[in-house]
Computed example of a mutant assay.
Amino acid sequence: MRIAIFTVTQRGKALALTLQKHFPHSQVHVLPKFYEGEEGVLPIEGDLKTTVGGLFPSRDYLIFIMATGIVVRTIAPYLQHKSQDPGVLVMDEGGEYVISLLSGHIGGANEMTLKVADKLGATPVITTASDVQGLMAVDTLAHKLKCKINDWQLTKKITAHIVNGGRVRIYGGIPASIKLPTNYEAIEKFTELIDGDYGIYIGNDPIDKNHNNILQLYPQNIVLGIGCRKDIEADTVIEAIKGALEEASIALESVKKIVTVDVKAQEKGLIEASKILGLPLEIIDRQKILEVEKDFEISSFVKNTIGVGSVSQPCAYLGCNRGRLLLEKKITNGVTVSIAEEER
């Protein structure tokens, strides 16, 4: 977890350092006059708002030990959407209360608030209606399942339905570790979703858009292994990816990352395509591919060119922790795509 802790008083710093012991990889930010060169502590250069703005997009959680009003004014310019914003927590410098201020569900702030309160013996303050009622909001469910939400309007409607006493049917892979509250009903057939007021489908294959009362949650467990010719265009890569996903009946929203071989690490078209699609690009060393390439189809031309005989298949396989190949490979205009699924 990438955690930044901000404080503007000496007493707040003492609490921040105590909190840091429970979250060792966190970074504490203090006013320069309170900075004494401690490891894991940085002085706030310039004003607080600028420092927070620089960290806001790249941190999972921001924890402020100061007045709530200061925090609201500080983060206001950087707010985007609940699907993007980090979890924001506020604490008083006496350590009595921990407030979940922003991104309580999908950003994990509510859960983090409970953790921090437990570590410090503080009182957690959570105000989201579903949590107050002991229910589970849709975005909380998605967060627990590590799923992506695409339709936020429908998400809000379903959560409102739950808060007002409604029940929602769910179909799809729900791990045994997830205990569903009473406001959800797991069913055995997709068709049973259609009859209810609202339904939730958990799966990688796209559903009919005419089912406008059914929300799809996309598991983030699909990995694309890609090989391509030199100087490939980004549009060509994207076209090949979309074609492969369509052939395998898999939604783009379920793709976790793109994986390729080290010799393609600087391939501009591949890098640009990953940025356009909003997907991380992971690089696999050829030595690792050599260890498993015997299990895949070998090309003597590729072997003589880059030292390994297969790229897309072993990249997909290794990138998903040796999961299951759903599409061995599809070649389109110089781009080879393999699709693998991580075990959930």
Rank of each mutant, 00 (worst) to 15 (best):
Ala273Pro: 09
Ser103Glu: 08
Gly172Tyr: 10
Val8Ala: 07
Arg324Phe: 04
Leu120Thr: 12
Pro86Ala: 14
Lys329Phe: 00
Val255Cys: 05
Leu19Phe: 05
Thr68His: 04
Lys256Gln: 13
Leu327Ala: 01
Ser130Thr: 14
Glu342Met: 15
Asp197Ser: 01
Ile207Ser: 00
His25Phe: 07
Gln20Phe: 03
Gly134Val: 01
Lys264Glu: 03
Trp152Glu: 09
Gly203Asn: 03
Tyr97Ala: 10
Tyr198Glu: 02
Tyr171Leu: 05
Leu325Asn: 07
Ile283Tyr: 04
Ile241Ala: 09
Arg229Lys: 15
His105Ile: 03
Gly108Glu: 01
Leu42Arg: 15
Lys148Val: 09
Lys288Met: 12
Gly121Glu: 12
Thr123Lys: 14
Leu215Gln: 06
Val88Ala: 03
Ala340Ser: 07
Val98Leu: 10
Ala129Phe: 06
Thr127Lys: 05
Leu31Phe: 03
Thr236Arg: 14
Ala109Gly: 04
Gly196His: 11
Ala129Gly: 04
Asp47Ile: 14
Ala240Leu: 03
Ala4Ser: 15
Pro24Val: 05
Gly225Tyr: 05
Lys256His: 05
Lys157Arg: 14
Ile284Val: 15
Arg73Thr: 12
Gly199Gln: 00
Gln287Trp: 04
Val263Glu: 11
Thr74Ala: 12
Glu293His: 13
Thr332Asp: 06
Glu38Gly: 12
Glu246Tyr: 06
Ala251Phe: 03
Gly319Asp: 11
Asp205Cys: 01
Leu180Arg: 08
Ile331Thr: 05
Thr260Ile: 06
Ile226Asp: 02
Ile170Glu: 01
His29Tyr: 15
Ile289Phe: 11
Thr127His: 05
Lys157Ala: 13
Gly108Asn: 03
Pro219Ile: 06
Thr191Trp: 00
Tyr61Ala: 12
Ser26Leu: 11
Gln313Thr: 09
Pro32Asp: 13
Pro280Trp: 09
Ala186His: 10
Ala273His: 06
Glu272Asn: 04
Leu120Glu: 12
Ile44Cys: 10
Ile222Cys: 01
Cys320Gly: 04
Glu185Trp: 00
Leu101Ala: 06
Glu341Pro: 02
Asp208Ser: 08
Gly199Phe: 04
Gln266Asp: 15
Met66Ala: 02
Val337Trp: 02
Ile70Leu: 14
Pro219Ala: 04
Ala122Gln: 11
His22Ile: 02
Ala129Lys: 11
Arg2Thr: 14
Thr182Gln: 12
Asn164Trp: 00
Ala129Ser: 14
Ile3Gly: 12
Glu36Tyr: 13
Ile250Ala: 02
Gly54Phe: 08
Lys157His: 13
Gly104Ser: 06
Asp195Thr: 14
Ala265Gln: 15
Gly121Asp: 12
Gly227His: 01
Val72Ser: 11
Asp85Gln: 13
Leu42Thr: 14
Asp139Pro: 03
Gly225Met: 09
Glu38Arg: 13
Thr236Phe: 00
